[in-house]
Nucleic acid binder design. Structure first.
Lengths: 207, 207
DNA sequence: GACGACGTACCGACTAGTTGGTATGTGTTG
DNA sequence: CAACACATACCAACTAGTCGGTACGTCGTC
C-alpha cells in the first residue's frame, strides 16, 4: 500500500514505508517490526541496511529531503517571471498540497524533530538540514523582490524564508489537533497576506 | 528537581514531572517508570491516580491548560487600554518567554498532539482544547481592534488568533531543529509585523 | 475497622538488536 | 570457460532487556 511499484530493494521499500508510518504514529511509537511489515521485508533486511533504528531515522529525513526537494524543484511556480510572484505562487502551491488525510500532507521532519531533538542529535541535525535547505530555495526570490523595491528592512530574506516554514509547521500542528486541513489553510492565507503587505501589494481581502 | 516545593501529593508531583519530561523526550519515549522517578513516587502511586499512561497524558494536557492559563491571565499585557496594544503586547510577552533551554519554553500540547493525533483521540482532544481555549482568550481584543477601525476583512478574529498559535508552534519546531530560541524570536517578530501591517500600524522596521 | 493513599514485587507482552545461515551475484585466475 | 574466492542482499529464529500494567501489602486517618 505504501510501497512503490517497480521492483525496489528492501532499503527503499523501508524508506517509503517510514515516510507514511512515522508521519502517522510518530517516530518513537513506530516499531522496527511495524516498518518491516509495512515494507514487506524481514527484520534481518532492516538491520542489514541500517545499523540502528536511529540510522533509519536519519536516512528517512535525508530521503524526505530528496523526494520533496525534487517535487518542489519540478513545481510550476518557478516558471513565473517576477520573483515576488514566484514566492507567492510557492505559498499557493503549499496551500494546494493540503489535501487528503493529515498524515499525507504533514511534514516528516517536523514530526521527527519534536521527538528527537534532545535524545537523537543525528536525527535532529538531519531534520534541520532538511528544513533549512528547503527554506534556502526561497531566499533568492525573496532577495530579488527586496532589491527590486529597494527595500532595506530590519529582517533578512533568510528569516522570512524560515518564517514561512514555521507557519507551515505550526499549521500542521493545528491540523493534527483539529483533525483537518481547514485551519492549516487559514494560516497559510494569513502568511500570504503578510507577504503581500510586506512587499506593498494589496491583498485581495478587503480591510 | 522538576517537582514543586510545598507538600504536594503524588498526583501533582507526577503532573509537574510530566510537563518537563514529556517536553524534553516526547510523549511516547517517556516511560511511566521515568515519570515516577522524576516525581519521586512509585509505580503503585502512578496507577493509583491514573488508570493508564494515556489517562496521564490527558490529565497533563488539562494541567498544562490550567497552569499556563493562570499565568497568561495574570500577565501584565491585559492592563493596556487599547485592544490592539493588548494583542501586540501579548505577542511581546510570548517572545519574552523564549528564555532558557528549549524544553523549558516549548509547548507541551503541541509536542503531544504530534505523536498522538492518530493513535490517542482523547489526548488529541485535550491538546486541541488547550490550544483552542488559549487562542480564544485573544479573540475579544482582536474583534475590538477590528471594530474600532471599522474593518470587515476576509479573515476572522478566530482565524487570526489561531494563526498566532500556529506561528508559535512552528517557531518551537524551528527552535528544536536549530537548538536555540533565536529562530523562534525572529518568527515572532514577523508575526508582530504582520499584525501591525494588518491593522494599519507602521512597524518599527524600515522598508 | 474501613477506606483512601501510597509502596513492593512481579508478570506478560513487546522491542531493538543479534545470530547464523542462504541465495545470488561479481570478479579473477588457471 | 570453469572453478574458486568473496561480497552483497536478504531471511527466520532467537535473546536480553524494557514497558505498561497488576496483585497485594502497609500505613495513616476518620
Amino acid at each position: 500500500m505504501a510501497t512503490s511499484a517497480a521492483k525496489p530493494d528492501a532499503r527503499s521499500k523501508l524508506l517509503d514505508a517510514a515516510l507514511t508510518v512515522i508521519r502517522t504514529k510518530g517516530y518513537a511509537s513506530t516499531t522496527v517490526d511495524e516498518l518491516c511489515a509495512a515494507a514487506g521485508v524481514t527484520k534481518g533486511a532492516f538491520f542489514h541496511h541500517f545499523k540502528t533504528k536511529d540510522e533509519l531515522g536519519v536516512a528517512a529525513a535525508d530521503y524526505w529531503s530528496e523526494t520533496t526537494g525534487a517535487m518542489f524543484a519540478a513545481a510550476p511556480y518557478h516558471q513565473l517571471a517576477d520573483p515576488l510572484d514566484r514566492f507567492l505562487a510557492y505559498i499557493d502551491f503549499r496551500k494546494g498540497l493540503l489535501q487528503g488525510g493529515v498524515p499525507e500532507f504533514t511534514c516528516l521532519v517536523g514530526t521527527m524533530v519534536q521527538e528527537t531533538y534532545e535524545t537523537a542529535p543525528a536525527i535532529r541535525d538531519a531534520c534541520d538540514r532538511s528544513i533549512s535547505r528547503h527554506a534556502a530555495t526561497l531566499i533568492a526570490d525573496i532577495e530579488a523582490a527586496m532589491a527590486e523595491r529597494g527595500m532595506t528592512p530590519a529582517w533578512t530574506a533568510q528569516s522570512l524564508a524560515l518564517h514561512t516554514q514555521a507557519v507551515l509547521q505550526g499549521a500542521f500542528i493545528l491540523a493534527k489537533a483539529k483533525g483537518g486541513a481547514g485551519v492549516a489553510a487559514d494560516s497559510v492565507d494569513h502568511l500570504k497576506r503578510y507577504i503581500e503587505l510586506l512587499f506593498g501589494r494589496t491583498p485581495k481581502s478587503i480591510t
